[in-house]
């Protein structure tokens, strides 16, 4: 019996709930930590980013309009599907980040837990961040946090799964829709996560994952007039320049940390609040 031929994979992007090739037709080889070929990934172009923003914008009304409880259910379902593919994630994380099997498995478990944690926050945010305001007048005055719209996320370059989940899940939990540019060198967990999103209940376009170079696509997303916020975590040295471009269209910017943080720590609310807007209602009361 002859030896089985290897199935060599060329992955695609995840845009609008579908898996298109890059409009540019480009792909690039992905290597593991030791430099061995693992798979080909699509190399997204600025037009793929543009298409992803269109898809994210189209999905925003439905996602932000869904009840917070429903969003929590959908996100919890994502964690369930991730759990089912934990072995695949662990293998990819181990190969990409050069971790031992045990450490990779721990990172995957932490990522699934992180997702569940954010799923739980969807219907609690309004209670924690909003509330009634005591005002000196005949008004019932209250504030509620609302999602701002389409958020571009430049995912961390090093932590390919836990880091990715830590930046994507908060955006989705708030009711925003996301366009994510994955780690350039370690895109495989992002690709598998897009397969998870496609097979869970997340509506198409709510999360769009582009594999490719954040340095190439980042500026287009930062300048895009239809992007409401940008998370510069994976921008590296270009972060300052991107912040400047984002100011041109008054985006909400989550600044890049000086160095990639340790993602295992308690994230707090710091990644959810930047992409929320507070709506305050003054409702007249009388007799």
């Amino acid at each position: 019996m002859s030896e089985r031929l290897e199935v060599r994979k060329t992955y695609k992007l995840y845009v609008g709930g579908k898996f298109p090739r890059s409009e540019s037709g480009r792909t690039y080889p992905v290597a593991d930590g030791r430099g061995h070929f693992v798979a080909n990934a699509a190399k997204a172009s600025r037009k793929d980013a543009r298409d992803a923003v269109v898809a994210a914008r189209a999905a925003f009304a439905g996602w932000s309009g869904a009840t917070a409880y429903n969003r929590g259910q959908v996100l919890y379902r994502v964690a369930e599907v991730m759990e089912g593919r934990a072995a695949q994630f662990a293998e990819e994380v181990a190969a990409g980040e050069g971790l031992s099997a045990a450490k990779a498995r721990a990172a995957v478990d932490a990522a699934v837990d992180r997702w569940v944690w954010y799923a739980g926050w969807t219907d609690k945010l309004a209670a924690v961040l909003g509330g009634t305001n005591p005002v000196a007048g005949p008004y019932f005055d209250f504030s509620v946090p609302e999602p701002s719209g389409v958020v571009a996320v430049l995912a961390p370059q090093r932590s390919s799964l836990l880091g990715l989940v830590s930046v994507l899940a908060p955006v989705l939990a708030t009711g925003c829709t996301a366009v994510v540019v994955s780690s350039l060198q370690r895109p495989l967990p992002a690709i598998t996560l897009s397969e998870v999103l496609a097979t869970s209940d997340v509506p198409g376009g709510v999360a769009n994952l582009l594999t490719g170079d954040a340095a190439e696509i980042g500026p287009w997303l930062a300048e895009h007039a239809d992007v409401d916020g940008i998370d510069l975590t994976g921008a590296g040295t270009a972060a300052m320049e991107l912040e400047r471009s984002a100011a041109g269209t008054l985006k909400r910017v989550l600044r890049a940390p000086a160095d990639e943080p340790d993602w295992t720590g308690d994230p707090g609310l710091s990644r959810m609040t930047p992409f929320l807007e507070t709506k305050t209602v003054w409702h007249p009361i009388g007799v």
């Binding site: 914008r57 287009w220 300048e223 239809d226 992007v227």
Partner: peptide
């Protein structure tokens, strides 16, 4: 047209 004029992508709000 706005994209060509300004150099960055525009959106339906514009």
């Amino acid at each position: 047209r706005q994209k060509l004029r300004t150099g960055h992508y525009s959106g339906p709000d514009h």
